[in-house]
Simulated scan of single mutants.
Amino acid sequence: MSMKISTIQVWVHDQDAALEFWTKKVGFQVTADVTVAELGNFRWLTVGPAGQPDVSLSLMAVPGQPVMDEQTRDQVLEVVGKGFANTVFLTTDDVDGDYARMTALGVEFVEKPEDRPYGRDCGFRDPSGNHIRLSQLNPDFAG
């Protein structure tokens, strides 16, 4: 089978704020930024790590009508803001260095790097509230 993961969607409150965060603070690159007039000016915005051109995050604005009624939209925004909509898992070969670099750029970590059974790990949230884990995995961890 040749199926692969290409894009993962995360809900964001503000695509421009998310774009700035993911590119300027996390260090990802823009992989697509297209506005589709035929779909009511729908903006397809994706970012990804420089070393993985075939994998990206879609920074998806939470839609209103006709996709979601206002009550559902408000509920999604609330759940995202609390950090419970999803978690993005990132790996690095220098968690302490990335923690220091990103902290200096204003990223607010909810957990400092700590040793875990699978490696060294910390957590932060994006401007919308999405939870992100940053891990430096032990070489023998198969996860």
Rank of each mutant, 00 (worst) to 15 (best):
T91Q: 09
A104G: 05
P113I: 02
R101S: 08
V80A: 04
L105E: 12
D115L: 08
E108F: 04
P117Y: 11
V79L: 02
V110P: 00
V95Q: 01
D96W: 11
P113D: 05
T92W: 10
V95D: 04
A85C: 02
G97V: 11
R116I: 07
G97M: 13
F84V: 06
V80W: 03
F109M: 09
R101G: 09
A85G: 01
T92Y: 11
A100E: 12
D98K: 11
P117D: 12
A100N: 09
T87V: 15
E108A: 12
P113R: 01
E114P: 09
R101D: 14
F89D: 15
V95F: 09
G97P: 15
A85T: 00
V107H: 06
Y99F: 15
R101M: 08
V80D: 03
T87Q: 11
D96P: 06
K112I: 01
G81M: 04
D98C: 07
L90F: 08
E108H: 12
V79K: 00
D94H: 05
T91S: 10
K112M: 01
R101I: 10
P113F: 02
T103R: 10
K82D: 00
G106T: 09
F89E: 15
A100L: 10
L90A: 06
L90K: 05
A85Y: 02
P113C: 04
D94K: 05
K82G: 00
G97S: 14
L105Y: 14
E111R: 12
V79A: 02
A100K: 13
G81F: 01
L90D: 03
D98Q: 15
V110A: 05
D96Q: 10
A85K: 02
V80E: 00
F84A: 05
F109A: 02
V79M: 00
V88F: 07
N86S: 11
L90Y: 05
T103A: 13
A85E: 03
Y99G: 07
D93H: 08
T91C: 07
D96K: 11
G81I: 02
E108N: 03
R101W: 04
K112G: 00
T103G: 06
P117V: 14
N86G: 06
A104W: 07
D93R: 14
F84D: 06
Y99V: 10
P117C: 13
N86A: 14
L105N: 13
G83P: 03
F89K: 10
K112F: 00
F89Y: 15
A104N: 08
F84W: 14
N86E: 07
V110N: 06
K112A: 04
T103Q: 12
L105T: 10
G97W: 13
E114N: 15
D96F: 06
P117T: 11
Y99A: 08
G81D: 00
V107E: 04
K82P: 00
A85R: 03
V95N: 06
V79F: 00
Y118S: 11
N86M: 12
D115A: 13
V80I: 02
R101A: 09
D96C: 07
G97Q: 14
P113Y: 04
T87E: 10
V110F: 03
V107Y: 05
E111K: 12
